[in-house]
């Protein structure tokens, strides 16, 4: 029987869980680090009977009393998709500075994407990561694991791409 861990938490900055699927040729370890903002330990009310049963074998779920300061985000207007032209996403204000992405679309295909405003003056890909990394630091995730390659979230539509962080992550590597 495999061991099942179910942990239920009440705040976002509690348990940090990193999953790793390893290929047979790679033995690189994945490390999870302790969130810096954890204060106190409290198992929240489980939402299911199963969670209650499993909580005995689950690691401590921690409730943070000092919630990270939220990054601000502006609602952005959508650019048309499926057509041609150059579209500039709204500047998105973050803790770390302003990020703005511009894409060129030809027949619905993005032919060019560039971040036209970045928080820092560093090399392009470092800048994008500089944008992403502090957000993760706010969640108390280790910086060495914070070099984000992709964002998983509720379905991003074509219209939403220009405002997505994924577009900024792509921009550094578009040929």
């Amino acid at each position: 029987m495999r061991k099942i861990i179910v942990a239920v938490m009440s705040t976002i900055s509690g348990l940090v869980l990193l999953f790793s699927y390893h290929t047979s040729t790679n033995s690189q370890a994945t490390e999870a680090t302790e969130p810096a903002t954890d204060v106190g330990t409290e198992q929240s009310a489980p939402s299911t009977p199963n969670a209650a049963e499993a909580s005995g074998s689950a690691p401590d779920a921690s409730e943070s009393t000092a919630a990270p300061e939220p990054a601000s985000a502006t609602e952005s207007s959508s650019a048309a998709s499926g057509s041609s032209g150059t579209y500039t996403g709204d500047a998105v204000e973050t803790h770390w500075g302003t990020v703005q992405v511009q894409i060129t679309v030809v027949d619905g295909k993005i032919t060019k994407a560039a971040a036209i405003e970045y928080p820092t003056e560093n090399r392009k890909d470092q800048q994008i990561n500089a944008y992403a990394i502090p957000k993760l630091n706010a969640e108390a995730v280790a910086a060495q694991s914070a070099r984000i390659d992709a964002i998983s979230g509720a379905t991003v539509t074509s219209d939403g791409y220009i405002e997505s962080l994924q577009s900024a992550l792509d921009a550094a590597h578009l040929g």
Partner: peptide, 26 residues
């Protein structure tokens, strides 16, 4: 490892978790 961030559905400018994958899906 590929580093995948999971978006916070309550504030899409924030990340909920990150996870490291070599081969797999999210």
């Amino acid at each position: 490892d590929w580093v995948i961030a999971i978006e916070d559905p309550r504030d899409r400018s924030r990340m909920l978790r990150t996870l490291c994958l070599r081969t797999g899906a999210v």
